[in-house]
Design a binder for these strands. Structure first.
Length: 633
RNA sequence: GCCACUGUAGCUCAGUCGGCAGAGCGGCUGAUUCGUAAUCAGCAGGUCGGGGGUUCAAGUCCCUCCAGUGGCUCCA
């Protein structure tokens, strides 16, 4: 029997030798990291006997498939532990996910004490290094074995005739499973249960609700510890925590989902607006402001009433029904329609930064990243068909520039026609193809999110990851053939005929709220100097320098820098510490030495050294970095 | 909206079996006049998320509403 190993090396194996044994024999140095194998490209247990000529490769945690196997094996262990804790629990399924695994159970609602019991049971199993043992059984045997678990019976029934039905034993616990698995539970020392939650029940289904237990798994305890440390770090830079500490924004019980922007947070918003407006000016946009409320009839025209009403705030006034706008598009459409339009006006680019209201379900609210009142850096581009490609190219270019400025890594998702949509399928497909062409032309990688488009248009969504790798959706580019039609928009073309324009709805940063939520976490509250609410803090060494410090502050303020004085009621070291904790980019110490020489001692955030500069030298340095929007102080 | 959990001073949290509401930080006042990540002392600050109930007695037990957290669903 000839077995081909990775790299094309062919070895001879005795028929019946387990895959793991052969791999260990041929690659003894690495054998300890092998948790499963690929047999002719199919993942299998290491215990699988080799019976014919084949290609064989080891799988480790470094392989995506290997990682999935470890995580799925961890899910089995969770199931074993939960059933040991609550015997009447009925396991359903437990797949690996992007960040770990889960296992869903039909069981009474779990409580934290259940997790403690499960952890104990899991530890015991891990200590015992219980092997995962595969058995293939008949359909009848399977039906008998899982007679008390309707979910497993359903999976058995769904298994195509002719496909083997396999079960895996872990000690006394048995689960219906295709496998493969790690050799034994000793591999699961790096398992950690993150938590549990109830699942939304499918409409119409009865009986106890499902409970999901989520976890992560690593090959070693040490890797788990590293992961947990990263998570703890992520919690420390939670924008909700930083926002409170730095007094950027506020949420009150009385107004769930409605952020209060505090003075310092408002500086961030204004700086972002200024940044975006600079682009608007260069790229030929005009800014408008349209009403916050429109009568129902306008939303009937736009399609919102049919497709988006659930998410809208609605007011009844004098017997008429008004909706608070959830998007800016209707207003822009009405402006376009307000008079005859010529092709010479196109592209017409209307930007609007108006507060939008969306009645997001209470359970989905989350700090700044999911709110009920938000402001987008929104614009609508009214285009002729042959202007679309060029505009899309400009937008993708602009996105690259913006996200580079913020040092955010971004990726694109092409979201296609959803189940509920307006208009004709053919138009949708044309729009989707146009967006895809633009993405290809820009040369950036993208993913297709089938069925994730808006109800009126397919879109390119911009996803950013913060520095800890968590993904967020921010900007969006939507190519819309529906709304112009529904609003009856027309322009007179060079041919003298009336045509319907195409509209691109687009945001770059998305919303100030979500963008700042993400960016606060990305920079961990250490804002680039141009964004920092306080750019310079002046620390007089003692009372006799307070006057000079105030003078310096005024001097800095007159150049446009945001500066403040920390008066010497506290010790200098304490004020230095506070400035560092407040993430102030530039801390200037002013004492006798500096007063005499007309200099300042400059401490740059994150650096313990300080540099003596003349006042004009510092001002020039700081202003230059602010003006260039440098990321670091 | 659904499931679970949580809610004590501005913030982070302690509060045992139901028996007098606490600490640190922050704030204020005073002393100190300070040279690059915490000087010292004192003081103020609470409807224990709201309402209802059980009890001689509720921060603590029960019900309910509100808000938050983690998921589900949804989404910028």
């Amino acid at each position: 029997m000839n077995i081909t190993l990775p790299g094309g090396r062919a070895v001879v194996g005795q028929v019946g030798i387990p895959a793991g044994e052969l791999l260990a024999r041929e690659m003894p140095d690495r054998a300890r990291s092998f948790l499963a194998a690929l047999l002719d490209g199919r993942p299998v247990d290491l215990a699988t006997p080799l019976t014919a000529d084949a290609e064989l490769a080891p799988l480790t945690f470094a392989d995506r498939a290997g990682r999935d196997i470890l995580e799925h094996s961890a899910a089995h262990l969770v199931a074993k532990a939960l059933v040991a804790t609550i015997p009447e629990a009925r396991p359903t399924h437990g797949p690996p996910t992007e960040e770990g695994f889960f296992y869903d159970f039909e069981v009474r609602p779990l409580v934290p004490a259940d997790l403690d019991a499960m952890r104990t049971a899991m530890d015991r199993s891990i200590q015992a290094r219980e092997p995962f043992v595969r058995r293939e059984i008949s359909r009848a045997e399977a039906n008998e074995l899982f007679a008390s678990n309707p979910h497993k019976l359903r999976y058995i029934a769904e298994t195509p005739e002719g496909e083997p039905i396999s079960v895996y034993y872990t000690g006394a616990f048995v689960d219906l499973c295709r496998g493969p698995h790690v050799p034994d539970t000793g591999w699961l020392a790096g398992i950690h249960v993150l938590g549990f939650s109830g699942l939304e029940r499918d409409a119409g289904s009865e009986g106890p609700s499902l409970q999901r237990v989520r976890g992560v798994a690593f090959p070693t305890r040490a890797e788990l510890e590293a992961y947990l440390k990263l998570r703890a770090e992520a919690e420390a830079r939670d924008h909700r925590v930083i926002g409170a500490k730095q007094e950027l924004f506020l949420f009150l019980d009385e107004t769930p989902g409605f952020p209060f922007w505090l003075p310092k947070g408002m500086v961030l918003v204004r700086e972002l607006e200024t940044y975006v407006r600079e682009h608007l000016r260069r790229a030929g946009y005009s800014e408008v402001r349209t009403p916050l409320l429109f009568p129902q009839s306008v939303y009937e025209t736009s399609g919102h009433w049919e497709m988006y009403r659930e998410d809208m705030f609605v007011s009844e006034l004098e017997g008429r029904t008004f909706g608070w706008k959830p998007m800016n598009c209707p207003g822009s459409m009405l402006i376009f329609r307000s008079r005859a339009r010529s092709y010479r006006e196109l592209p017409l680019r209307l930007a609007e930064f108006a507060p939008l209201h969306r009645y997001e379900a209470s359970g989905t609210l989350h700090g700044l990243t999911r709110v009920r009142e938000l402001v987008q850096d929104d614009a609508h581009l009214f285009l002729m068909e042959d202007q679309i490609d060029a505009e899309l190219a400009v937008l993708l270019d602009w996105i690259r520039e913006a996200f580079t400025t913020f040092r955010l890594e971004w990726s694109y998702e092409l979201s296609t026609r959803p189940a509920r949509f307006l208009g004709e399928v053919a138009t949708w497909e044309k729009a989707e193809a146009t967006l895809e062409r633009a993405l290809r032309a820009s040369g950036v990688p993208y993913r297709i999110a089938a069925g994730e488009g808006g109800f009126y248009a397919p879109k390119i969504d911009i996803h950013v990851r913060d520095s800890l790798g968590r993904p967020w959706q921010t900007g969006t580019i939507q190519l819309d053939y529906q709304m112009p039609q529904r609003f009856g928009l027309q322009y007179q073309g060079p041919d003298g005929q009336l045509h319907t324009p195409v509209v691109v709805h687009r945001t770059i940063l998305g919303t100030w709220e979500r963008f700042l939520g993400v960016f606060i976490e990305h920079c961990a509250g250490r804002f680039p100097p141009w964004l920092a609410p306080v750019q310079v803090r002046v620390l007089p060494v003692s009372d006799r320098h307070a006057e000079a410090a105030r003078g310096l502050r005024d001097e800095l303020a007159s150049t446009g820098l945001r500066a403040e004085v920390a008066s010497p009621e506290e010790s200098l070291p304490k004020r230095v510490r506070a400035a560092e904790l407040d993430r102030i980019p530039y801390t200037l110490v002013l004492g006798d030495r500096e007063a005499e020489q007309g200099t300042v001692a400059v401490r740059i955030r994150g650096s313990k050294e300080n540099r003596t500069m003349s006042r004009p030298e510092f001002t020039g340095y700081a202003l230059d970095r602010v003006r260039r929007r440098e990321y670091d102080p």
